[in-house]
Every structure is written in C-alpha cells, then in structure tokens.
C-alpha cells in the first residue's frame, strides 16, 4: 500500500522492492546458468576482485577457512569454469539449483549490497534412479552495481550437509 501523505517514504519502499526484485532476478539467472552448465556465463556474474567460496557449516561455525572451492578473484573463477568444461573427468549429471528466502540485509560503506538467500542443489546421476539432495545451504552475498548490471563481489556458499555425496563436480 502506498502512503498518500508521505511520497518520500513511498519512493524508498519502491526502491527497496525494485532492488529485491533485481537481486531475485540475478539469483534466478545464476541458478539457470549453473543448471544448464553455462559456466563461462556463470564466471561473468562476478566482479574482477570477487571472493567465491563453498564452505561447510562445520568449518564456518568454527571460523575455519577451508572451502571445497576457494576463489580469491575472478581469474580463479574462470580457471574453475575452464577446468570443469575442458579438463575435469566426471560422469554426466543433471543439476537443479533452487534459490529462495531472499533477504536484503543492508549496504556496506562502499555501496555493496549485503544479502542472503537459502539454496538447494538437487543432482541426478544417469546411473541412479533418484534425484538426490546434493547441497542445502545459505548464500551470504555482496552485490555491486557494475555499469547497469549487478555482479557478485562476494558469494560465500555455506552448506549444512555434513557429507558431500562423493564429489561436488559443478559450482553452487
């Protein structure tokens, strides 16, 4: 509901809605890029200085830094994308990334937008009958506006499941 007596407050609320929607669109496009294994496009969704890590909740809770995937900049993200597409040996699979429960948490001093969202990754192997829950966790994000697009300056994927089912072949 718009408040007819306070147009400035309305503008702030509309802006928040637009930002929420923009980040949601970003996350949907991110999930689609991974589901379809368009990894070059996935890498382009990060800023040049981006930090990307997939880390267990066990480690995160204990302030331990080891990540399944640990990228300190976009170059490492691109190396990951290249390696998975051209060198790594793993069985074919279907993946479904589902992102929800988005919350915009605030703004950093440099203008980066802090957000979090829950995620689920479901995996289908071609030699097993079932789709299995591969990861469930939270994205802790910092988004930055680059030109007219949002990009990820940081994405920390903290997964709850204690065990990785054999191997995490594609990013989260």
């Amino acid at each position: 509901m718009l408040d007819k007596r306070d147009p400035a407050a309305n503008d702030r609320r509309i802006e928040a809605l637009l930002l929420h929607r923009e980040v949601e669109d970003f996350n949907n496009a991110y999930a689609a890029a991974l589901d379809e294994q368009r990894l070059d496009e996935w890498a382009e969704m990060f800023t040049d200085d981006a930090f990307y890590v997939v880390i267990s909740r066990e480690n995160a809770d204990r302030k331990m830094p080891v990540g399944l995937i640990y990228c300190e900049n976009k170059g490492m993200i691109q190396d990951r994308a290249f390696a998975l597409q051209h060198t790594a040996m793993f069985a074919p699979r279907y993946l479904r990334h589902i992102v929800g429960n988005l919350q915009i948490l605030g703004e950093e001093a440099n203008g980066d937008i802090r957000a979090r969202a829950n995620y689920v990754v479901v995996q289908v192997l071609l030699d097993r009958p079932d789709a299995k829950l591969h990861q469930v966790g939270v994205y802790y994000d910092k988004f930055r506006r680059v030109g007219d697009r949002l990009k990820l300056a940081e994405r920390r994927c903290v997964y709850d499941n204690l065990l990785v089912d054999n191997a995490l072949c594609l990013p989260v």
Partner: peptide, 28 residues
C-alpha cells in the same frame, strides 16, 4: 602462506580438480 595453502587446496578434496576425478573413478 595460509592463503596460498587455501588457494592450492582447490586441487584436492571432493571438489578438487584432482580430488573429484579420483572420487568419480573409484565410483566407476
């Protein structure tokens, strides 16, 4: 040095460039 170890850790573990291949091969 800690950062270097973490960076190089991308080789190993269940998402490592080498590690994931070993896990897959053993499954096969």
């Amino acid at each position: 040095m800690t950062r270097h170890r973490l960076r190089q850790g991308n080789l190993m573990g269940p998402a490592g460039f080498l590690g994931l291949e070993d896990n897959e091969a053993i499954k096969f």
